[in-house]
Design a protein around this nucleic acid. Structure first.
Lengths: 138, 138
DNA sequence: ATGAGTGCAAATAGTTTGCAAGCTG
DNA sequence: CAGCTTGCAAACTATTTGCACTCAT
């Protein structure tokens, strides 16, 4: 998991962003969990006084901008972020009641790109989240 | 377009929901636009004093619960709703700057269902939105 | 030293809730 | 006429912004 953090930090540097204790802490949290987290959740896991909640929001936004983290959306609209798990783009299956998350590699990014481009759209991105009730929560 | 509204009203009745002027107005708006709208946007299009913004929120929530409308999420997390266009489940390609929306029939709901069920998840739903910059906005 | 990054306070956007009054079936 | 619906006010959650100060480079 340590590696994920240093790779991320490396990328930050490459993109001209500065490396601070706060950013290192946030990335460490994201690397230690296996599910996408919202800014507030990430903040809650952070060691006491690592940084301000606002900083968490700002950092995550920056991280996303340079591609260090991927952003998803919860069923209720909350934005969530996760490190690329070293495997780039992927999606998640999340339990509505307990939040348990499984990784899904299924993705039709290529097809979507093609369709979007046929409409003349550029810089195509997509958000996809799958929700359900997991076996232990039924 | 009129037909869409009456079909929807019919469904409401079948589900035990009451038919009011407010609901009719909201459905009429959704039927008249070809893109998913948020509660606030829908409210803004509504003829003056059709109903309260809160009512729009509540109605859309009810509509979704009984399957009269489908819910999606914008890139920024805003919830959006649209009538089924009479063709059930589908997705959208939305321009980030002007909001222009194209319908996409591409969907891997079946595959997602299968994967989710293999994890033991039930009541599987998914949210997918595609974003890009449309040709006239470049 | 200089501008990116941070903390704190306060403002926003979007949405939800409580409650009394109104209207539908 | 019972109870689903609505309107209004107010609370809330998630997120953003302004500004002075600090720290990484």
């Amino acid at each position: 998991m340590k590696k994920l953090v240093s790779v991320a930090l490396e990328k930050l540097k490459k993109e001209g962003l500065r490396i601070t204790e706060q950013r290192r802490a946030i990335l460490t949290v994201l690397a230690s969990v296996d599910q996408p987290k919202s800014a507030e959740e990430t903040f809650a896991i952070l060691p006491e006084d690592s940084c301000d909640l606002v900083t968490a929001y700002r950092c995550l936004e920056q991280f996303e901008k340079v591609g260090v983290v991927e952003r998803g959306v919860r069923e209720n609209g909350t934005k969530v972020y996760c490190l690329g798990h070293g495997h780039g783009h992927h999606h998640h299956l999340t339990c509505r009641s307990c939040g348990r998350t499984e990784r899904i590699d299924l993705c039709m990014g290529t097809e979507l790109d093609a369709v979007a481009k046929s409409f003349g759209f550029t810089e195509v991105t997509h958000v996809m989240e799958v929700f359900g009730n997991c076996p232990t929560c039924v």
